[in-house]
Simulated scan of single mutants.
Amino acid sequence: MPSSAEPAPPTGIHHTGPPGPTTTPSATGGNRVIPFGRRTTRTGRGRRTPQPAQPERVVGPGSPEQRLAETAEAWFLKRGTSLTDETTADTYRATLDLVQLMLDGSLHEQIVGADEHRHLSGMVRGLRDAPDAL
């Protein structure tokens, strides 16, 4: 039985994103899908599956991750702010989440291939983790 907080979708249709339109016109006049994929943790009748704890990433001194974090921090310091500031770090991560959404949409629309998507997503993940490495 669906939760009272979530309306039950019509039979045979599964919505994976927020309510509202999920297509935008393309330059060629057809509709293009904007993927709002959501990884669900539900199984069967709305029961949530336990999620394993994510291991904490350890960034060693002089590692590529640490050098990337220091480069990003230098970029922010040059502009009078820092990734050690929680508000700045939160905005930075939100921006990179938006970049990841763009990459996911590009993969879905076959603008980039799976290898390119994997490579670029890895780069975005590395940048996104920079505040944690400082």
Rank of each mutant, 00 (worst) to 15 (best):
R38H: 12
D115M: 03
T40W: 09
A72G: 02
R125W: 09
H117F: 14
T41S: 14
T28W: 08
D115N: 05
N31I: 06
V58A: 03
G113M: 07
R42A: 15
P61Q: 06
R118L: 07
L98Y: 11
G105K: 08
P61I: 00
M102E: 15
G20P: 00
R32A: 14
E56T: 05
L77F: 06
P52I: 00
T24N: 12
A53G: 11
D85H: 06
G17Q: 05
Q100E: 15
G60I: 01
Q66D: 05
T11Y: 03
N31E: 12
P64F: 03
V59E: 08
R118T: 13
V58R: 00
R79W: 09
T43P: 00
G113R: 04
V58W: 00
T40L: 13
R39T: 13
Q110R: 11
P50T: 03
D85R: 10
P21Q: 10
P61C: 00
L83R: 00
W75E: 14
Y92H: 03
S63E: 05
T43N: 06
D97F: 06
R32N: 09
P50F: 01
T71D: 11
R39Y: 15
P25A: 10
T16H: 12
L120V: 13
E116W: 02
P35N: 14
G30E: 11
V112M: 02
R79C: 04
S26L: 13
A27D: 03
R118V: 02
E116M: 08
R45N: 15
L98F: 08
H14I: 05
A89P: 10
T43V: 15
T23F: 07
D115W: 00
A89Y: 07
T95K: 09
T40F: 10
L101Y: 06
G122M: 03
H119L: 08
G80P: 02
V124L: 14
D85C: 02
A94L: 13
F76D: 05
P25L: 13
K78W: 06
L68N: 02
R118N: 07
L83M: 04
E109H: 09
Q100N: 04
R47V: 15
A27L: 13
H108P: 01
Q100D: 15
R47P: 05
N31D: 10
A114Q: 09
P35E: 14
F36A: 14
G20V: 07
E109F: 07
I111G: 04
G122W: 00
V58F: 01
V99S: 09
V124M: 07
E109L: 13
G17W: 08
A27C: 00
P35Q: 14
T11I: 05
G12R: 04
A72Q: 07
L127M: 13
N31H: 01
I34S: 08
S106E: 14
R48H: 13
L127P: 03
T11F: 03
D85P: 06
R93Q: 07
A69Q: 01
A114Y: 07
A27R: 03
Q66H: 04
R38S: 06
G46M: 08
R118D: 11
I111N: 02
T84I: 02
G37F: 10
S26N: 11
E65N: 04
H108G: 01
T91Y: 12
